[in-house]
């Protein structure tokens, strides 16, 4: 038989961006340990609807840990206690009967709360729009195997490209820095031969936009890496710092 548990949830409720929020406590019974964390919230929401109350609004879509939509801080940790796991992939077997679980939205100034656990992450999109691409017209590409790429390079690019853009890194950082996100994107494209021609422009434009969106500076605390569901490494930040510095030097001389 499946094992179940009873829980106490402390959930952040906030009507919209203009109003203040607060924690509300809900008891919840008979949650299967095989359920996912979001399925647990589904049960809560069905109960709330039954009582004619508004359910807890939270962002989610794929429920497979890949779309990066789910975004909540569980017992003080972005995406919860399980390493390299998004909230939607977290399963209740990692909690125990009688436990109190606190659930709140990402807390970061550039990501304002829209409702309950939903925040606005569009600054990430704007960082991408500034330089997170390789310019090229559909139809103008050369034969794919014309340019061999060493396996190590491709693997490194893939490690960086695995970022799902969830924003946990920002939520976990005391400075609300978006360096890990930006660095992952820059590392992915700057490491590939196709991305080299725009290497400098990309690093400069993305970092400038990132700063302009109000994200804080990186002081090497490392909380971002610890919560990243895709285990993006801090090394990416080191690479971005190098690329950025080199680009700045070059742009200085060009300006002269």
């Amino acid at each position: 038989m499946e094992k179940t548990m009873n829980l106490t949830l402390k959930v952040w409720r906030q009507k919209n961006a203009a109003t203040d929020g607060q924690f509300v406590e809900y008891p919840l019974k008979d949650v299967s340990e095989d359920s996912s964390f979001l399925e647990m919230l589904d049960i809560l929401n069905e109960e709330l609807v039954e009582q004619g109350k508004e359910p807890v609004a939270f962002d989610h879509d794929c429920r497979e840990g890949i779309c990066g939509t789910c975004s909540m801080t569980i017992n003080g940790t972005a995406h919860g206690p399980q390493r390299a796991t998004t909230a939607c992939q977290l399963h209740m077997r990692h909690f125990h009967d009688g436990q109190t679980i606190t659930i709140e939205p990402w807390r970061a100034k550039p990501f304002p709360v829209m409702k309950d656990l939903i925040v606005d992450r569009t600054p990430f999109d704007r960082i991408m729009q500034a330089g997170g691409f390789i310019t090229g017209r559909a139809g103008s590409a050369v034969e794919a195997n014309a340019m061999p790429i060493p396996k190590g390079t491709a693997d490194y690019a893939m490690d960086a490209a695995a970022c799902i853009g969830c924003g946990a890194c920002v939520a976990a950082c005391p400075n609300a820095s978006a360096m890990l996100f930006t660095a992952a994107k820059v590392a992915h494209m700057n490491s590939l031969p196709q991305g080299k021609p725009e290497k400098d422009r990309r690093a400069l434009a993305m970092v400038t936009t990132m700063d302009g969106e109000g994200f804080g500076g990186c002081t090497n605390i490392g909380e971002c890496e610890a919560v990243c569901p895709k285990e993006i490494s801090l090394d990416m930040i080191a690479q971005l710092n190098r690329d950025y510095a080199a680009a700045q030097v070059k742009s200085f001389f060009k300006a002269v």
Binding site: G139, P148, A154, M158, A161, Q194
Partner: peptide, 17 residues
């Protein structure tokens, strides 16, 4: 071709293909 040009990091063999 298009995907490789836009930076999709497809799996590769040791020879780079």
């Amino acid at each position: 071709d298009q995907c490789v040009a836009s930076g999709v990091p497809f799996a590769r063999e040791y020879g780079g293909q």
